[in-house]
Design a protein around this nucleic acid. Sequence first.
RNA 1: GCGGACGUGGCGGAAUUGGCAGACGCGCAUGGCUUAGGACCAUGUCUCGUAAGAGAUGGGAGUUCAACUCUCCCCGUCCGCACCA
Length: 817
Amino acid sequence: MDYNKQIDEKWQNFWDKEGIFNTDTKDTKNKYYCLVMFPYPSAALHVGHARNYVIGDAVSRYKRTKGLNVLSPMGFDAFGLPAENAAIKGGLHPKTSTLDNIATMKQQLTQWGIGYDWNREVISCLPEYYKWTQWIFTKLYEKGLAYKKRAAVNWCPKCLTVLANEQVINGACERCESKVIERDLSQWFFKITAYAQTLLDDIQELTHWPERVKTMQINWIGRSTGVNIDFKVDDEETILACYTTRVDTIFGVTYMVLAPEHPAIPGLIKNNPDACIIQAFIEKVRIQDKTERAAENIEKEGIFSGRYVINPVNGKKVPLWIANYVLMEYGTGAVMAVPAHDSRDFAFAKKYGLDIEVVIDNPKERLDALSMQTAYIEDGVMVNSAQFDGLGNREAMEKIADWMQEKKIGKRAVHFRLRDWLISRQRYWGAPIPIIYCDKCGEVAVAEKDLPVLLPENVAFKPTGQSPLKDSEAFIKTRCPKCGKEAQRETDTMDTFVDSSWYFLRYISPKETEKPFDGHLVDKWLPVDQYIGGVEHAILHLLYSRFITKVLYDLKYVSFKEPFGALFTQGMIVKNGAKMSKSKGNTVAPDYIIDKYGADVMRLYILFMGPPEKDAEWQDEGLQGSARFIQRALRMVDMLKEYRQSSETGELNSHEKDLVRKIHSTIKEVTLDLEGDFQFNTAISRIMELVNQTYKCLNETSLRQSIFKEAVDTVFLLLSPFTPHISEEVNEALGNKGSILKRAWPRFNEEYIKTDTVEIAVLVNGKVRDKLIINVNWSKEEIQKKALACEKVKNFLKNTPPKKIIYVDKRMVNIVV
RNA sequence: GCGGACGUGGCGGAAUUGGCAGACGCGCAUGGCUUAGGACCAUGUCUCGUAAGAGAUGGGAGUUCAACUCUCCCCGUCCGCACCA
């Protein structure tokens, strides 16, 4: 039997015709929701993408043969910058180019033998989908979780749109890597910060999520606990609130610093003769772009404000400074500076000759403020801190916080790093934000019956820095839903991540026209049993989806708090040590592989190349190995057909017994590999061993046909999640009717795996000296005696009795001399 | 700086969780079969050594009868966050 393209096509047509992958979601018994992150339809897929779908398909097929009712849907994250940019480049309308790309990708996925329920396809740029994205917006709006505010936001000068915090990587745009600049703009936000604590707490429940993803989310949410302290400005009523996590150092405050953007500054400096010098400094800092300001070793710069503030714990008057190292976005934008115990404050104090006061002493060596070379940030003993002197600083931290709360000069507080999610975009290819502005009624959300707000198709969609919808009078002009007067539509579109933050709910009832999803069925099918995708979504998509799910939970649309039960993040496929990308020119196109070797060879190699969660280096030679293995396995089928050998009766010979044992132990181990953490690479290697051993048997002995057949059958059943086309073909050749997916996953019999004899190692002082074949029924004493009788052991013993003998059951004997 | 993952042959990677290091595959070598072979089959392939043996899982110490696995200290790679108060 030869593997060729016809076999691929034959079975792909068969699966399609039989509707093998179509799932009835009304049948919720034994449900298994296997979900692979849906792709952007922007470019041709390479083998790196393929890994994602091949893993998902292997899982879905395996679960099917285990008898589960598997739902495996696919769709396209079709709105957004990548699709729009691709369209502009190709001179096409985004809708045309996106739908074209989708068609190509579907064809690719089909060619690879990836089985999806295409009846459930979800395309986020079509009105029947984005109607409900807009609906979700209005639900958040009703709850006050969607709001518009003027704020300093991240602006990408190349994409000509604002970006969410999560889309800014090292101060640069996630997509085009241009440096992001700060602009004050009025924008729409989702109040994800209202869910910061829940998003953090519930991470604990995600027991089947990779540790690194959870850690990344924890860091991103960035919870810290401390104390809010009000510092009064001297000779004035102005109060400056600051936040500290180190309230134990409060007695060591020698100055206070404000971020240049701090709103209190204009009032504080207005009577200062140096006001214009201070103003010039502030301007200078503000025009620095974010990258520069956040750069690692940027020189700390500051200026004295001319004012003083009072430390509420001791009434001490300390100078108020303005400096570039304080950020307005975090805490209150005001920092109490303790140079003795904070390295940033220390560097700043040294530069500007500010006081340094030690309040936590090093128990090993007394600190001296004048001679210190670095800040002392470790734990120690309280000094110069009034009644708290002598305490350990950890203990003092709690005591001071309590004392300050009691005296009402401080308040315990929790801060998060997480910012609200900026969702407006000044680009064309997205779902319009369903808001209407009326001169009389103000901001009004579009009513559900008026959704969707259709994205007009005949507009010049090139990015200009303003939403292209602003030019479409037909779009903008509308009537106020409340008073009926003429009104204008919001022209910004939504971030694509809004579209993808709920698509997994839509798959359950994708044809629904009266509601976004069938709540009853969604409650049965969700959370997703297995979610599979790239780690690049660790924060963005996964955090947003968790947030939207929690909102829908609070609004009682769903009854679960977390959308994804188990998450698997596969590693990248790299070539020449680098991530595959068109610009580097190191992509490997699956089409050519499919042509030359067939889908199963590509699938097998992708799964065999290494643990799926780790990055793996692509080597073309590896494909040869997979192709060779498949041909070698298929040759057994031909041999079996012509096989006329020995009798079927009588005692099994030892090779036959060994082969039966191997068949059953292979089933056992492959099953364990798949039930565990998707160890496809080791599963495949075990199947290879079974093939090797079968050949060995055929060469060395007369093998009865029934056992040979069982070996062949088992090999292709076990391979079926990985190489479905040839498995189907062999299944048919062996006389079975229908799809191999309808056959049960093979079972193993523990009885057949048992052996009478086993080879163990004989060690002397922990080193292997000899091997010994033992009968498993022998007693420990018997085995030890045999081990001592080994020639090599005798040489080491030299007639002296051994000090100690350790026997590990069916593994080894260690003799200590 | 903080947090996470990791370091095993020429290469991709195994190792039942403390019990025979290098499974399986690639590559390479030798032989066979072939008009030919980048096909196939067989055998071999950690290092040193003719051998007995000795040494090997980034480096160093420790625990143990026994360490790739556990503990401590270094070195290095990758990822995330980062003037976060």
